[in-house]
Design a protein around this nucleic acid. Structure first.
Lengths: 133, 133
DNA sequence: CTTGACCTTACCATGATGGGAAGGTTTAGG
DNA sequence: CCTAAACCTTCCCATCATGGTAAGGTCAAG
């Protein structure tokens, strides 16, 4: 299977497959005589694993660990769970940061008349003026 | 005021002040004979505005618009509000993506025993197996 | 045999930020 | 007055995951 086929089959771009190879996330692909990379079902499976992990927001380094655990038949599910929970904590941190931004801004927007006059609590707040809660 | 003082006063790094100048977010600073940048209260005020906008997650391009509106005495608060609401929508999109990741992963982690045995619904799900809801 | 679709490598860009090097300036203390 | 520390300058590189493009090689269908 050439890289384009493997890419569609796994749901990642050919570009990213080459990148994953370059950074050692997947082994060097076999090459045909033409120097084209050649992939099999296992490769596609691995790429699908990577794609799904990315979709859950895992970083490349975390995926490196997950791939190692996937291939380790004597793994402890506790190790996997710990990795997942650490990532969940990261996600929670990000979510609460974003929610804090959203709530602050939402409040300001709510206080803003949004008409054609210049007075605006959003601008005032950014300018450092205290805006009543 | 030298760049370091302006930086502490405004709560941004000296590095970023130079960067904001380089990308045209703030005007070229006055220079002393020594070639050191020289800042005044207005500059610090502008930098504080930028910092607060960054803290609310606005992009540099959005801040460019906000700065223009700030300086435009004939602005319409409606324009500011529209910008803010568009950004709120971006934040909501990001939050819901993250929350979807978090919920999926949280469910999988919940189904994982987390002991020293290898069986693990997290790995199974990443490997493409269907995991019961 | 040509054409178009595919592959190869190599380089550059993103956005906001930080790190560091190499060198010039200012300031405070001895 | 001299020196050392603290500050400033510019320039280049790194992040993270991804995409774009260019120049060139290969393959399949008409």
């Amino acid at each position: 299977m050439k890289i384009g086929e493997a890419a569609s089959a796994a749901g990642v771009s050919a570009k990213m497959i080459r990148h994953y190879e370059a950074i050692g996330l997947i082994p060097f692909a076999d090459r045909r005589e033409s120097n084209y990379r050649d992939y099999g079902r296992d490769d596609v499976h691995r790429l699908g694993f990577i794609r799904r992990a990315r979709e859950l927001g895992f970083s490349i380094d975390e995926i490196r660990d997950l791939l190692r655990l996937w291939g380790d038949k004597s793994r402890s599910s506790g190790d996997v769970k710990a990795l997942a929970q650490s990532h969940i904590a990261d996600l929670d941190t990000k979510i609460s940061h974003l929610r804090e931004m959203r709530d602050t801004l939402s409040h300001l927007a709510h206080c803003c008349d949004g008409n054609d006059r210049p007075d605006c609590p959003i601008i005032a707040s950014l300018a450092g003026e205290r805006v009543p809660a």
